[in-house]
Design a protein around this nucleic acid. Structure first.
Lengths: 191, 191
DNA sequence: GCGGCAATTTGATCCGTATCAAAATCTGAC
DNA sequence: GTCAGATTTTGATACGGATCAAATTGCCGC
């Protein structure tokens, strides 16, 4: 999906994962987030009729495509779908606001902890084991998502590993002490 | 408007301004943004049926209230309103994403410049002079919105004043060189 | 105009993360 | 298994903004 392209369909990822981002004037990526199975992309396109960001797959991926024409027809007939669309958009908005607030007031390790906790919740929601995380994105992607440098992200993983909270082998993360991560960010652990 | 309260209406500010925020566990405010005339609040409530953040007036304010029951009836009958609601939500989402990205990659003065430029655009949109800004919020509110401390915000204003880009007298800001601020953030100036 | 309080500005120091640099590890192709 | 290239980790230093503290300014009642 390309930013600026005409929004002719809503896309929902079925399997695999993807990266949502925009390109800055300097050509660097602003990583808005990562898309997991069951999640929709392109919602911000309702603003102008054109997609507002780029989405690229991080691994082989399959998705479902709902043409706008079809969507409008369905919205005409199904009050339940109308509510569901508003719910979906409201949730995306709520998440974006929440993420933004956290960025503003949490330090590097807190952000990484929250990133992992968030992934855990979303994996659990889809029935995957929440504490065995296979990261499909690079440290650089994570860093650009969290407003940090890749070195700082790496150091945060290093700290958590030394504390015995995580097992880290490249992109395979085992969360050994979810309650420790949760305590760091003031939340209740997933599972 | 209180976070967690049942979302029984959509609110649109008519005159005056307000602050959107959530309370953190420590009791501090995460300021999501400021509401100007013509702008809606409470959209994130579609996610759960409950408002997701607090909104409090920064000055005497009037607003328009659309009960959810009424809204659903209207959505049933008016395809144009359906599109408009989706557009409104898409725009809120797009803005939230954009703001978040900027927070992650801009330094203190850049954020303050962007804050002022954004206000200029929104004031101009409603027919107010874009370069005479009367801030209805405190430095602390601005700081919490931008993920800075109030001292840092003050220093940014101080720098811009010394450079001759701004006239600052307490909460009255005159933008003397909009193109300088715009250049700082890589954008075209408003007006 | 004057007094008192809150908001803002200014100053000095410290800490966390960015930056630059280099070593170590992982990955996929052969 | 081995090799080359990319990714990740680790190390040393520098800088921006946070923090603590104090002075100044603006605001509102009298």
């Amino acid at each position: 999906m390309r930013a600026g392209a005409s929004m002719d369909a809503l896309l929902v990822v079925r399997s695999g994962s993807a990266k949502r981002f925009t390109l800055t004037l300097e050509g660097t990526e602003q990583v808005h987030g990562f898309v997991l199975p069951g999640e929709a992309v392109g919602l911000e396109g309702f603003a102008t009729g054109r997609y507002g960001c780029e989405v690229s797959a991080l691994e082989p991926l399959s998705y479902c495509r709902v043409p706008m024409r079809k969507l409008e027809q369905l919205l005409e007939r199904l009050p339940g779908l109308r509510r569901e669309m508003l719910r979906l958009l409201g949730q995306a908005l709520d998440e974006a606001l929440r993420l933004r607030g956290e960025l503003a007031e949490t330090d590097a390790r807190g952000r990484v902890a929250r990133f992992l906790a968030d992934l855990s919740v979303r994996l659990a929601r889809r029935g995957f084991p929440p504490h065995e995380i296979r990261l499909s994105m690079s440290r650089a992607d994570i860093a650009r998502h969290l407003g940090l440098t890749l070195e700082t992200v790496s150091r945060a993983f290093g700290t958590f590993k030394r504390e015995g909270w995580l097992r880290v082998r490249a992109r395979n993360i085992s969360v050994l002490r979810p309650e420790a991560l949760a305590a760091l960010i003031g939340a209740t652990p997933c599972v």
